[in-house]
Nucleic acid binder design. Structure first.
Lengths: 120, 120, 120, 120
DNA sequence: GTGGTCTAGACCACC
DNA sequence: GTGGTCTAGACCACA
Protein backbone atom coordinates (compact mmCIF):
# COMPACT_ATOMS: atom_id res chain seq x y z
CA UNK A 1 0.00 0.00 0.00
CA UNK A 2 1.11 3.50 -0.80
CA UNK A 3 0.52 6.49 1.39
CA UNK A 4 -0.21 10.01 0.29
CA UNK A 5 2.14 12.67 1.59
CA UNK A 6 -0.42 15.27 2.41
CA UNK A 7 -2.29 13.30 5.03
CA UNK A 8 -1.11 11.76 8.27
CA UNK A 9 -0.31 8.10 7.76
CA UNK A 10 -2.25 6.99 10.84
CA UNK A 11 -5.37 8.60 9.36
CA UNK A 12 -4.80 6.73 6.12
CA UNK A 13 -4.48 3.52 8.11
CA UNK A 14 -7.82 4.21 9.78
CA UNK A 15 -9.39 4.58 6.36
CA UNK A 16 -7.69 1.39 5.26
CA UNK A 17 -9.33 -0.45 8.16
CA UNK A 18 -12.68 1.18 7.42
CA UNK A 19 -12.52 0.02 3.84
CA UNK A 20 -11.57 -3.52 4.79
CA UNK A 21 -14.59 -3.71 7.06
CA UNK A 22 -16.96 -2.09 4.59
CA UNK A 23 -15.73 -4.35 1.82
CA UNK A 24 -16.47 -7.35 4.00
CA UNK A 25 -12.86 -8.50 4.17
CA UNK A 26 -12.79 -8.15 7.93
CA UNK A 27 -15.91 -9.56 9.56
CA UNK A 28 -17.58 -8.74 12.88
CA UNK A 29 -15.87 -10.32 15.91
CA UNK A 30 -12.98 -11.38 13.72
CA UNK A 31 -9.48 -10.72 14.99
CA UNK A 32 -7.64 -7.97 13.12
CA UNK A 33 -3.90 -8.19 12.33
CA UNK A 34 -1.59 -7.47 15.24
CA UNK A 35 0.07 -4.09 15.41
CA UNK A 36 3.37 -5.67 14.54
CA UNK A 37 2.04 -7.64 11.58
CA UNK A 38 0.17 -4.73 10.08
CA UNK A 39 3.21 -2.50 10.57
CA UNK A 40 5.31 -4.96 8.59
CA UNK A 41 2.67 -5.36 5.91
CA UNK A 42 2.21 -1.62 5.44
CA UNK A 43 5.93 -0.90 5.87
CA UNK A 44 5.23 1.55 8.62
CA UNK A 45 6.37 2.26 12.16
CA UNK A 46 4.43 0.14 14.71
CA UNK A 47 3.72 3.30 16.70
CA UNK A 48 1.81 4.62 13.72
CA UNK A 49 -0.36 1.53 13.50
CA UNK A 50 -0.84 1.71 17.27
CA UNK A 51 -2.13 5.22 16.99
CA UNK A 52 -4.67 4.22 14.35
CA UNK A 53 -5.85 1.20 16.37
CA UNK A 54 -6.14 3.40 19.47
CA UNK A 55 -8.42 5.76 17.68
CA UNK A 56 -10.45 2.92 16.20
CA UNK A 57 -10.98 1.54 19.70
CA UNK A 58 -12.02 4.97 20.93
CA UNK A 59 -14.56 5.10 18.11
CA UNK A 60 -15.77 1.60 19.04
CA UNK A 61 -14.93 0.21 15.63
CA UNK A 62 -12.54 -2.24 17.27
CA UNK A 63 -12.64 -3.81 20.72
CA UNK A 64 -10.01 -5.61 22.74
CA UNK A 65 -10.10 -9.20 23.96
CA UNK A 66 -7.45 -9.12 26.64
CA UNK A 67 -4.44 -11.14 25.78
CA UNK A 68 -5.84 -12.20 22.44
CA UNK A 69 -6.01 -9.10 20.31
CA UNK A 70 -8.24 -6.52 18.73
CA UNK A 71 -11.47 -7.55 17.05
CA UNK A 72 -14.01 -5.95 14.78
CA UNK A 73 -17.06 -4.69 16.69
CA UNK A 74 -20.42 -6.20 15.90
CA UNK A 75 -21.77 -2.87 14.74
CA UNK A 76 -18.56 -1.60 13.15
CA UNK A 77 -20.04 -1.53 9.69
CA UNK A 78 -23.09 0.41 10.82
CA UNK A 79 -20.98 2.88 12.76
CA UNK A 80 -18.63 3.52 9.89
CA UNK A 81 -21.29 4.04 7.26
CA UNK A 82 -23.37 6.22 9.58
CA UNK A 83 -20.44 8.46 10.44
CA UNK A 84 -19.21 8.62 6.87
CA UNK A 85 -22.64 9.51 5.55
CA UNK A 86 -23.08 12.16 8.19
CA UNK A 87 -19.76 13.81 7.34
CA UNK A 88 -20.39 13.47 3.64
CA UNK A 89 -23.88 14.95 3.67
CA UNK A 90 -23.38 17.71 6.21
CA UNK A 91 -19.85 18.79 5.53
CA UNK A 92 -18.46 17.63 2.21
CA UNK A 93 -21.51 17.93 0.04
CA UNK A 94 -22.25 21.58 0.87
CA UNK A 95 -18.59 22.44 0.23
CA UNK A 96 -18.81 20.53 -3.03
CA UNK A 97 -21.93 22.42 -4.13
CA UNK A 98 -20.34 25.74 -3.20
CA UNK A 99 -17.33 24.89 -5.33
CA UNK A 100 -19.51 23.91 -8.25
CA UNK A 101 -21.16 27.33 -8.11
CA UNK A 102 -17.84 29.09 -7.85
CA UNK A 103 -16.41 27.27 -10.85
CA UNK A 104 -19.69 27.48 -12.72
CA UNK A 105 -19.90 23.77 -13.26
CA UNK A 106 -23.48 22.62 -13.71
CA UNK A 107 -25.01 19.52 -12.10
CA UNK A 108 -25.56 18.21 -15.62
CA UNK A 109 -21.82 18.39 -16.25
CA UNK A 110 -21.19 16.45 -13.05
CA UNK A 111 -23.68 13.81 -14.13
CA UNK A 112 -21.99 13.54 -17.50
CA UNK A 113 -18.58 13.03 -15.92
CA UNK A 114 -19.97 10.46 -13.52
CA UNK A 115 -21.47 8.47 -16.36
CA UNK A 116 -18.22 8.68 -18.30
CA UNK A 117 -16.34 7.28 -15.33
CA UNK A 118 -18.74 4.38 -14.87
CA UNK A 119 -18.11 3.33 -18.43
CA UNK A 120 -14.39 2.88 -17.88
CA UNK B 1 -10.33 38.59 8.53
CA UNK B 2 -10.24 35.46 10.62
CA UNK B 3 -8.01 32.48 10.06
CA UNK B 4 -8.91 28.86 10.40
CA UNK B 5 -6.63 26.87 12.67
CA UNK B 6 -6.27 23.76 10.59
CA UNK B 7 -4.67 25.41 7.61
CA UNK B 8 -1.45 27.40 7.36
CA UNK B 9 -2.08 31.12 7.52
CA UNK B 10 0.04 31.85 4.47
CA UNK B 11 -2.11 29.48 2.43
CA UNK B 12 -5.21 31.26 3.62
CA UNK B 13 -3.65 34.56 2.59
CA UNK B 14 -3.06 33.13 -0.88
CA UNK B 15 -6.73 32.22 -1.08
CA UNK B 16 -7.63 35.65 0.20
CA UNK B 17 -5.70 37.19 -2.68
CA UNK B 18 -7.25 34.77 -5.16
CA UNK B 19 -10.72 35.70 -3.96
CA UNK B 20 -10.04 39.41 -4.17
CA UNK B 21 -8.88 39.03 -7.75
CA UNK B 22 -11.72 36.74 -8.77
CA UNK B 23 -14.24 39.05 -7.12
CA UNK B 24 -12.87 41.91 -9.18
CA UNK B 25 -11.76 43.90 -6.15
CA UNK B 26 -8.15 43.82 -7.28
CA UNK B 27 -7.78 44.54 -10.98
CA UNK B 28 -5.08 43.56 -13.45
CA UNK B 29 -1.94 45.71 -13.20
CA UNK B 30 -3.23 47.25 -10.03
CA UNK B 31 -0.92 47.48 -7.04
CA UNK B 32 -1.71 45.10 -4.19
CA UNK B 33 -1.23 46.09 -0.54
CA UNK B 34 2.39 46.22 0.53
CA UNK B 35 3.73 43.38 2.62
CA UNK B 36 3.76 45.56 5.70
CA UNK B 37 0.30 47.01 5.18
CA UNK B 38 -1.35 43.67 4.62
CA UNK B 39 0.49 42.29 7.64
CA UNK B 40 -0.99 45.04 9.80
CA UNK B 41 -4.44 44.62 8.29
CA UNK B 42 -4.49 40.86 8.79
CA UNK B 43 -2.70 41.11 12.15
CA UNK B 44 0.02 38.78 11.05
CA UNK B 45 3.80 38.86 10.82
CA UNK B 46 5.14 40.47 7.62
CA UNK B 47 7.15 37.32 6.92
CA UNK B 48 3.94 35.35 6.70
CA UNK B 49 2.48 37.74 4.16
CA UNK B 50 5.78 37.66 2.32
CA UNK B 51 5.60 33.91 2.08
CA UNK B 52 2.17 34.11 0.49
CA UNK B 53 3.26 36.84 -1.93
CA UNK B 54 6.34 34.80 -2.80
CA UNK B 55 4.26 31.89 -3.96
CA UNK B 56 1.88 34.15 -5.79
CA UNK B 57 4.81 35.57 -7.72
CA UNK B 58 6.10 32.08 -8.46
CA UNK B 59 2.67 31.22 -9.83
CA UNK B 60 2.67 34.40 -11.91
CA UNK B 61 -0.44 35.73 -10.19
CA UNK B 62 1.54 38.77 -9.04
CA UNK B 63 4.53 40.55 -10.53
CA UNK B 64 6.97 43.01 -9.07
CA UNK B 65 7.68 46.58 -10.10
CA UNK B 66 10.98 47.20 -8.38
CA UNK B 67 10.77 49.62 -5.51
CA UNK B 68 7.11 50.29 -6.21
CA UNK B 69 5.32 47.17 -5.19
CA UNK B 70 3.63 44.00 -6.31
CA UNK B 71 0.93 44.12 -8.95
CA UNK B 72 -1.78 41.83 -10.26
CA UNK B 73 -0.76 40.03 -13.45
CA UNK B 74 -2.78 40.65 -16.57
CA UNK B 75 -3.82 37.01 -16.73
CA UNK B 76 -4.12 36.43 -13.00
CA UNK B 77 -7.83 35.76 -13.19
CA UNK B 78 -7.44 33.25 -16.00
CA UNK B 79 -4.63 31.46 -14.20
CA UNK B 80 -6.55 31.18 -10.96
CA UNK B 81 -9.75 29.84 -12.47
CA UNK B 82 -7.85 27.44 -14.72
CA UNK B 83 -5.94 26.05 -11.77
CA UNK B 84 -9.05 25.81 -9.62
CA UNK B 85 -10.94 23.93 -12.31
CA UNK B 86 -8.01 21.62 -12.90
CA UNK B 87 -7.77 20.70 -9.21
CA UNK B 88 -11.51 20.26 -8.94
CA UNK B 89 -11.86 18.04 -11.98
CA UNK B 90 -8.74 15.93 -11.57
CA UNK B 91 -8.42 15.65 -7.83
CA UNK B 92 -11.60 16.48 -5.96
CA UNK B 93 -14.18 15.06 -8.33
CA UNK B 94 -12.67 11.54 -8.52
CA UNK B 95 -12.45 11.48 -4.71
CA UNK B 96 -16.06 12.61 -4.57
CA UNK B 97 -17.22 9.86 -6.92
CA UNK B 98 -15.27 7.25 -4.99
CA UNK B 99 -16.99 8.34 -1.81
CA UNK B 100 -20.39 8.22 -3.49
CA UNK B 101 -19.74 4.60 -4.43
CA UNK B 102 -18.50 3.71 -0.99
CA UNK B 103 -21.52 5.22 0.71
CA UNK B 104 -23.84 3.94 -1.97
CA UNK B 105 -25.26 7.33 -2.71
CA UNK B 106 -26.69 7.50 -6.20
CA UNK B 107 -26.20 10.40 -8.63
CA UNK B 108 -29.96 10.90 -8.51
CA UNK B 109 -29.78 11.46 -4.77
CA UNK B 110 -27.05 14.06 -5.31
CA UNK B 111 -29.17 15.81 -7.91
CA UNK B 112 -32.13 15.85 -5.54
CA UNK B 113 -30.05 17.40 -2.75
CA UNK B 114 -28.63 19.98 -5.11
CA UNK B 115 -32.09 20.97 -6.23
CA UNK B 116 -33.27 21.20 -2.63
CA UNK B 117 -30.40 23.49 -1.78
CA UNK B 118 -31.12 25.80 -4.69
CA UNK B 119 -34.64 26.28 -3.40
CA UNK B 120 -33.50 27.62 -0.03
CA UNK C 1 31.33 25.40 2.37
CA UNK C 2 31.62 29.09 1.73
CA UNK C 3 28.89 31.36 0.49
CA UNK C 4 29.22 34.14 -2.01
CA UNK C 5 27.88 37.47 -0.84
CA UNK C 6 26.10 38.54 -3.96
CA UNK C 7 23.66 35.70 -4.09
CA UNK C 8 21.07 34.62 -1.55
CA UNK C 9 22.33 31.81 0.65
CA UNK C 10 19.24 29.68 0.14
CA UNK C 11 19.82 29.79 -3.62
CA UNK C 12 23.38 28.66 -3.10
CA UNK C 13 22.11 25.80 -0.97
CA UNK C 14 19.81 24.76 -3.79
CA UNK C 15 22.79 24.68 -6.13
CA UNK C 16 24.75 22.75 -3.54
CA UNK C 17 22.03 20.11 -3.51
CA UNK C 18 21.89 20.07 -7.31
CA UNK C 19 25.62 19.52 -7.49
CA UNK C 20 25.57 16.72 -4.95
CA UNK C 21 22.90 14.95 -6.95
CA UNK C 22 24.56 15.51 -10.33
CA UNK C 23 27.90 14.38 -8.92
CA UNK C 24 26.29 11.16 -7.80
CA UNK C 25 26.98 11.79 -4.12
CA UNK C 26 23.28 11.76 -3.28
CA UNK C 27 21.44 8.92 -4.98
CA UNK C 28 17.80 8.55 -5.96
CA UNK C 29 15.52 7.65 -3.04
CA UNK C 30 18.34 8.31 -0.62
CA UNK C 31 17.65 10.43 2.43
CA UNK C 32 19.22 13.90 2.37
CA UNK C 33 20.59 15.56 5.51
CA UNK C 34 17.90 16.79 7.87
CA UNK C 35 17.16 20.48 7.95
CA UNK C 36 18.85 20.82 11.30
CA UNK C 37 21.91 18.79 10.37
CA UNK C 38 22.56 20.66 7.16
CA UNK C 39 22.03 23.94 8.99
CA UNK C 40 24.76 23.00 11.46
CA UNK C 41 27.06 21.75 8.71
CA UNK C 42 26.68 24.88 6.60
CA UNK C 43 26.63 27.15 9.66
CA UNK C 44 23.36 28.66 8.69
CA UNK C 45 19.95 29.13 10.27
CA UNK C 46 17.63 26.12 9.87
CA UNK C 47 15.01 28.39 8.32
CA UNK C 48 17.41 29.16 5.51
CA UNK C 49 17.97 25.50 4.78
CA UNK C 50 14.23 24.96 5.03
CA UNK C 51 13.64 27.58 2.40
CA UNK C 52 15.99 25.81 0.00
CA UNK C 53 14.43 22.41 0.72
CA UNK C 54 10.98 23.94 0.22
CA UNK C 55 11.80 25.02 -3.29
CA UNK C 56 13.47 21.73 -4.07
CA UNK C 57 10.29 19.95 -3.08
CA UNK C 58 8.23 22.31 -5.20
CA UNK C 59 10.49 21.49 -8.13
CA UNK C 60 10.11 17.78 -7.41
CA UNK C 61 13.82 17.33 -6.85
CA UNK C 62 13.13 16.15 -3.31
CA UNK C 63 10.15 14.36 -1.80
CA UNK C 64 9.06 13.86 1.77
CA UNK C 65 8.59 10.66 3.71
CA UNK C 66 6.57 11.88 6.65
CA UNK C 67 8.43 11.83 9.92
CA UNK C 68 11.45 10.24 8.30
CA UNK C 69 12.96 12.93 6.13
CA UNK C 70 13.42 14.32 2.67
CA UNK C 71 14.63 12.07 -0.11
CA UNK C 72 16.03 12.47 -3.60
CA UNK C 73 13.41 11.96 -6.30
CA UNK C 74 13.90 9.16 -8.77
CA UNK C 75 14.12 11.60 -11.66
CA UNK C 76 15.92 14.38 -9.81
CA UNK C 77 19.00 14.11 -12.00
CA UNK C 78 16.98 14.28 -15.20
CA UNK C 79 14.99 17.26 -13.96
CA UNK C 80 18.08 19.19 -12.96
CA UNK C 81 19.98 18.68 -16.19
CA UNK C 82 16.90 19.38 -18.29
CA UNK C 83 16.29 22.63 -16.46
CA UNK C 84 19.93 23.63 -16.67
CA UNK C 85 20.06 23.03 -20.41
CA UNK C 86 16.83 24.89 -20.93
CA UNK C 87 18.11 27.96 -19.10
CA UNK C 88 21.42 27.82 -20.92
CA UNK C 89 19.97 27.50 -24.39
CA UNK C 90 17.04 29.87 -24.06
CA UNK C 91 18.40 32.52 -21.77
CA UNK C 92 22.17 32.54 -21.48
CA UNK C 93 23.11 31.65 -25.03
CA UNK C 94 21.08 34.43 -26.70
CA UNK C 95 22.57 36.94 -24.27
CA UNK C 96 25.99 35.54 -25.08
CA UNK C 97 25.48 35.90 -28.82
CA UNK C 98 24.16 39.44 -28.40
CA UNK C 99 27.28 40.35 -26.47
CA UNK C 100 29.51 38.79 -29.12
CA UNK C 101 27.89 41.01 -31.72
CA UNK C 102 28.17 44.08 -29.55
CA UNK C 103 31.85 43.52 -28.89
CA UNK C 104 32.45 42.37 -32.44
CA UNK C 105 33.98 39.12 -31.39
CA UNK C 106 33.69 36.51 -34.11
CA UNK C 107 32.68 32.88 -33.58
CA UNK C 108 36.10 31.91 -34.90
CA UNK C 109 37.72 33.89 -32.11
CA UNK C 110 35.55 32.06 -29.57
CA UNK C 111 36.58 28.74 -31.06
CA UNK C 112 40.24 29.70 -30.88
CA UNK C 113 39.95 30.66 -27.22
CA UNK C 114 38.09 27.46 -26.42
CA UNK C 115 40.79 25.40 -28.04
CA UNK C 116 43.48 27.31 -26.15
CA UNK C 117 41.75 26.60 -22.89
CA UNK C 118 41.47 22.89 -23.60
CA UNK C 119 45.20 22.70 -24.08
CA UNK C 120 45.91 24.02 -20.60
CA UNK D 1 11.78 50.85 -23.05
CA UNK D 2 11.03 47.90 -20.85
CA UNK D 3 13.04 46.92 -17.83
CA UNK D 4 13.79 43.45 -16.62
CA UNK D 5 12.77 42.67 -13.07
CA UNK D 6 15.82 40.77 -12.01
CA UNK D 7 18.32 43.58 -12.45
CA UNK D 8 18.46 46.98 -10.83
CA UNK D 9 16.91 49.56 -13.11
CA UNK D 10 19.78 51.99 -12.73
CA UNK D 11 22.14 49.31 -14.04
CA UNK D 12 19.87 48.79 -17.03
CA UNK D 13 19.94 52.53 -17.65
CA UNK D 14 23.73 52.46 -17.63
CA UNK D 15 23.65 49.76 -20.28
CA UNK D 16 21.14 51.79 -22.22
CA UNK D 17 23.56 54.71 -22.26
CA UNK D 18 26.44 52.43 -23.20
CA UNK D 19 24.49 51.08 -26.12
CA UNK D 20 23.49 54.51 -27.32
CA UNK D 21 27.11 55.56 -27.35
CA UNK D 22 28.38 52.36 -28.98
CA UNK D 23 25.66 52.55 -31.60
CA UNK D 24 26.76 56.07 -32.43
CA UNK D 25 23.49 57.68 -31.43
CA UNK D 26 25.17 59.77 -28.77
CA UNK D 27 28.43 61.32 -30.03
CA UNK D 28 31.52 62.46 -28.14
CA UNK D 29 31.12 65.86 -26.45
CA UNK D 30 27.43 65.83 -27.24
CA UNK D 31 25.04 66.75 -24.46
CA UNK D 32 23.04 63.81 -23.08
CA UNK D 33 19.37 64.15 -22.06
CA UNK D 34 18.78 65.84 -18.74
CA UNK D 35 17.96 63.68 -15.76
CA UNK D 36 14.40 64.91 -15.84
CA UNK D 37 13.92 64.30 -19.57
CA UNK D 38 15.37 60.83 -19.53
CA UNK D 39 13.29 60.00 -16.47
CA UNK D 40 10.15 60.99 -18.34
CA UNK D 41 11.20 59.13 -21.47
CA UNK D 42 12.01 55.92 -19.61
CA UNK D 43 9.08 56.31 -17.22
CA UNK D 44 11.31 56.05 -14.24
CA UNK D 45 12.00 57.95 -11.04
CA UNK D 46 14.50 60.81 -11.63
CA UNK D 47 16.55 59.55 -8.67
CA UNK D 48 17.11 56.35 -10.57
CA UNK D 49 18.42 58.15 -13.65
CA UNK D 50 20.55 60.30 -11.36
CA UNK D 51 22.11 57.22 -9.88
CA UNK D 52 23.00 55.87 -13.32
CA UNK D 53 24.46 59.23 -14.46
CA UNK D 54 26.47 59.45 -11.22
CA UNK D 55 28.08 56.14 -11.89
CA UNK D 56 28.72 57.00 -15.53
CA UNK D 57 30.52 60.14 -14.41
CA UNK D 58 32.57 58.13 -11.93
CA UNK D 59 33.56 55.83 -14.79
CA UNK D 60 34.43 58.86 -16.92
CA UNK D 61 31.94 57.91 -19.60
CA UNK D 62 30.16 61.20 -19.02
CA UNK D 63 31.53 64.54 -17.86
CA UNK D 64 29.83 67.62 -16.49
CA UNK D 65 29.85 71.11 -18.02
CA UNK D 66 28.72 73.18 -15.06
CA UNK D 67 25.32 74.67 -15.55
CA UNK D 68 24.91 73.16 -18.97
CA UNK D 69 24.64 69.47 -18.48
CA UNK D 70 26.33 66.13 -18.86
CA UNK D 71 28.25 65.30 -22.01
CA UNK D 72 29.72 62.21 -23.59
CA UNK D 73 33.46 61.93 -22.94
CA UNK D 74 35.81 61.98 -25.88
CA UNK D 75 37.02 58.48 -25.13
CA UNK D 76 33.70 57.11 -23.91
CA UNK D 77 33.46 54.62 -26.73
CA UNK D 78 36.97 53.33 -26.14
CA UNK D 79 36.42 53.02 -22.42
CA UNK D 80 33.17 51.16 -22.80
CA UNK D 81 34.41 48.65 -25.34
CA UNK D 82 37.65 48.09 -23.44
CA UNK D 83 35.84 47.44 -20.19
CA UNK D 84 33.19 45.27 -21.81
CA UNK D 85 35.77 43.18 -23.62
CA UNK D 86 37.80 42.77 -20.48
CA UNK D 87 34.81 41.56 -18.47
CA UNK D 88 33.64 39.37 -21.32
CA UNK D 89 36.96 37.67 -21.92
CA UNK D 90 38.13 37.28 -18.36
CA UNK D 91 34.94 36.66 -16.51
CA UNK D 92 32.05 35.66 -18.70
CA UNK D 93 33.81 33.54 -21.27
CA UNK D 94 35.47 31.20 -18.75
CA UNK D 95 32.13 30.78 -16.97
CA UNK D 96 30.54 30.11 -20.33
CA UNK D 97 33.09 27.44 -21.22
CA UNK D 98 32.69 25.83 -17.81
CA UNK D 99 28.96 25.61 -18.33
CA UNK D 100 29.41 24.12 -21.77
CA UNK D 101 31.50 21.36 -20.24
CA UNK D 102 29.02 20.78 -17.47
CA UNK D 103 26.10 20.47 -19.85
CA UNK D 104 28.18 18.58 -22.37
CA UNK D 105 27.46 20.99 -25.16
CA UNK D 106 30.18 20.93 -27.79
CA UNK D 107 31.70 24.00 -29.45
CA UNK D 108 30.35 22.66 -32.73
CA UNK D 109 26.84 22.76 -31.32
CA UNK D 110 27.38 26.36 -30.25
CA UNK D 111 28.60 27.24 -33.75
CA UNK D 112 25.56 25.58 -35.28
CA UNK D 113 23.20 27.56 -33.07
CA UNK D 114 25.03 30.78 -33.82
CA UNK D 115 24.70 30.18 -37.52
CA UNK D 116 21.04 29.38 -37.15
CA UNK D 117 20.48 32.62 -35.33
CA UNK D 118 22.24 34.68 -37.98
CA UNK D 119 19.89 33.30 -40.57
CA UNK D 120 16.80 34.60 -38.82
C1' DG E 1 8.60 53.90 0.81
C1' DT E 2 9.19 48.87 -1.69
C1' DG E 3 10.41 43.76 -1.69
C1' DG E 4 13.82 40.44 -0.04
C1' DT E 5 16.96 37.84 3.07
C1' DC E 6 18.52 36.11 7.35
C1' DT E 7 18.65 34.97 12.30
C1' DA E 8 16.94 33.36 16.68
C1' DG E 9 13.78 31.07 18.97
C1' DA E 10 9.28 29.03 19.77
C1' DC E 11 5.68 25.60 18.87
C1' DC E 12 3.24 21.92 16.32
C1' DA E 13 1.87 17.33 14.42
C1' DC E 14 3.68 13.30 13.07
C1' DC E 15 6.78 8.91 12.89
C1' DG F 1 13.86 12.29 15.71
C1' DT F 2 11.37 14.56 11.14
C1' DG F 3 9.44 18.60 8.41
C1' DG F 4 6.60 22.77 8.83
C1' DT F 5 4.75 27.24 10.51
C1' DC F 6 4.96 31.54 12.80
C1' DT F 7 6.84 35.54 15.27
C1' DA F 8 9.98 39.26 16.26
C1' DG F 9 13.37 41.89 14.86
C1' DA F 10 17.32 43.19 12.08
C1' DC F 11 19.51 44.58 7.75
C1' DC F 12 19.93 45.34 2.70
C1' DA F 13 19.49 47.29 -2.03
C1' DC F 14 16.56 49.75 -4.72
C1' DA F 15 13.05 53.59 -6.33
Amino acid sequence: MEFSDNKAIYLQIIEYVHENILAGKWHADERVPSVRDLAVELQVNPNTVMRAYDQLQAGEILYNKRGIGLHVSADAMTLITAKNREIFLNRELPAFFRKMDLLQISPEEIMRLHKLRSED
